[in-house]
Design a protein around this nucleic acid. Structure first.
Length: 472
RNA sequence: GACCCCAUCGUCUAGAGGCCUAGGACACCGGCCUUUCACGCCGGCAACACGGGUUCGACUCCCGUUGGGGUCGCCA
């Protein structure tokens, strides 16, 4: 009988969520959703660093913004909580005690400094930088003496040499690791807090997570967690390690290579649907090239369709999905999305028509504001090339244009037709100066849609400005 | 350094031995639409990292080389 699929996202609130993080969250969400399973959120705030509450809140806001709702975790609860690791100390203590009682873990008195030196010497000598196991040999009385002296101690999990750990990775296939390559690792820090390898694995088991989808950076750490879980007799989840996202230069994602936090993307005006569509296709493939909603994204998501090589972040692709998202957004959505200044400029009754007119030509809210100013604003900025086009057309041209607008109002086709007829100009020579004087630019949305929104008075004034002034 | 993972157009990718004259998307270029530009629509350019095998046949399998990524933390 197959267990209900339960995936999880277990971020550490040490900073804002970025593209790589949130992609992992998305994949977990999509998998759970496709199977009607559970998507769980757990906050790994063990080091209790300052500011973590701020980030805990921020990460939940980011997830909600993207629509990646969790059905178990902080804020929504669940039977297997608490879902903040900082509230689970008592649980961890039990397992530490069990491990120690069974002789599977031992206190280590080596100082950080000492360990660093050992690691460096090992590396320099071409040996693997693995813990020597020094404190494992300590006699009981020696341990007692150190404790009595107040020497700080960590707790190490003992990994026996000569074994092997095998598991099936959901995206990489079967994996085999020798235990001799692992070494004893720390599961409790000297300040008593649990280390990542430990609480992460324990919680997955205790919270009944059935599938762990995480970055490839955890692949070679997986055998440690399996060993731990086996030592404790806890159930093992299935694992799937996804390739990491790298920057345009192929190096790990950094601010330098365009990696931005989800918060920054949202503030820049990216639409959640654009981010989701981009991320779901980064290292994964869909037959459908249309903009998809989360449910459609989930329906065709498959771990088998995940590419195993690191994927490069490409801003152009993100922009493509942003363009699609803007194109398909409802006018209500767009109205919420534009800048407050643009919103203030748009008259209620021409709001929808305006948004429909410009949506194909805008990517971000400031772009919309630009057109709102052009269409509804009183002053007009004229770009250099536009100014040139106006001058080239000459004053007589605008005398005629003025008369045309007085006759035809917001009917751009009739207006331009009349100007063509009376000036003999057509094509570029006809439309560019008209567009330049009316909008201050040589490119933009269809004039036939902008002019009626602009209103006859505003348009007329803009044409008169370049004419001989007669009839002002 | 050891171990692990990976390698198809510039980028994201399809491809599970003959369906490949290597398909799609983004970008780019061209055309159409629009009496202008943009939007939209249509089309084009463009890749199997290299070297050995295995096979009647290799993008697909094996080995090596090169390149990239990851892990080996009292970070998660």
């Amino acid at each position: 009988m197959p267990r209900l699929l339960k995936t999880r996202f277990a971020p550490s609130p040490t900073g804002l969520l970025h593209l790589g993080n949130v992609r992992t969250a998305l994949f977990n969400y999509l998998l759970a959703r496709r199977e009607n399973g559970v998507f769980l959120l757990r906050i790994e705030d063990t080091d209790a660093m300052r500011g973590h509450e701020k980030y805990t809140e921020a990460l939940q806001a980011d997830l909600r913004w993207l629509g990646l709702v969790w059905s178990e975790g902080p804020a929504v609860g669940g039977a297997l909580g608490p879902y903040l690791q900082s509230e689970r100390s008592a649980i961890y203590q039990r397992y530490f005690a069990e491990l120690e009682a069974n002789g599977l873990a031992y206190p280590c008195f080596c100082s950080e400094h000492e360990l660093n030196i050992a690691r460096k010497t090992a590396l320099a000598a071409g040996r693997p930088p693995r813990y020597s196991g020094k404190c494992r040999q300590l006699a009981p009385e020696e341990r007692l003496a150190r404790f009595a002296a107040g020497t700080p101690a960590t707790l190490r999990f003992h990994v026996e040499d000569g074994g092997r750990v095998e598991f099936e990775d959901g995206v990489r296939g079967s994996q085999v690791f020798e235990t001799s390559e692992i070494g004893d690792f720390i599961i409790r820090r000297s300040d008593g807090t649990p280390a990542f390898f430990f609480c992460n694995a324990i919680d997955d088991a205790l919270m009944e997570v059935t599938l762990v989808v995480r970055g490839e950076d955890h692949l070679t750490n997986t055998p440690r967690q399996i060993l731990l879980l086996q030592a404790l007799g806890l159930p093992l989840p299935a694992y799937a390690h996804i390739a990491l996202v790298v920057g345009a230069d192929g190096a790990p994602l950094s601010k330098r290579t365009g990696s931005r936090s989800v918060q920054e993307l949202r503030e820049a005006g990216f639409l959640a649907r654009a981010v989701n569509n981009y991320l779901a296709r980064l290292g994964h493939t869909y037959e459908n090239n249309q903009l998809l909603g989360l449910d459609a994204l989930a329906a065709e998501f498959s771990a088998r369709r995940l590419h195993r090589a690191p994927a490069r972040f490409d801003e152009q692709h993100l922009h493509h999905w942003q363009h699609e998202a803007v194109r398909h957004a409802s006018t209500d959505e767009l109205c919420d999305w534009v800048t407050p200044a643009a919103r203030a400029l748009m008259p209620e009754r021409s709001r929808d028509a305006f948004l429909e007119a410009v949506r194909g030509n805008v990517l971000f809210p400031p772009d919309t504001e630009r057109w709102a100013k052009v269409v509804f604003g009183d002053t007009l900025e004229i770009a250099h090339d536009a100014h040139q086009a106006i001058e080239d057309a000459g004053k007589e041209f605008f005398d005629i244009a003025r008369r045309a607008i007085e006759k035809h109002g917001g009917d751009f086709k009739a207006l331009s037709g009349m100007v063509q007829h009376l000036t003999g100009r057509s094509g570029k020579a006809l439309f560019q100066p008209l567009r330049a004087a009316l909008t201050g630019a040589l490119d933009g949305p269809e004039m036939a849609r902008l002019l009626p929104l602009m209103g006859e008075e505003r348009a007329r004034a803009r044409l008169i400005r370049w004419s001989n002034g007669a009839g002002g």
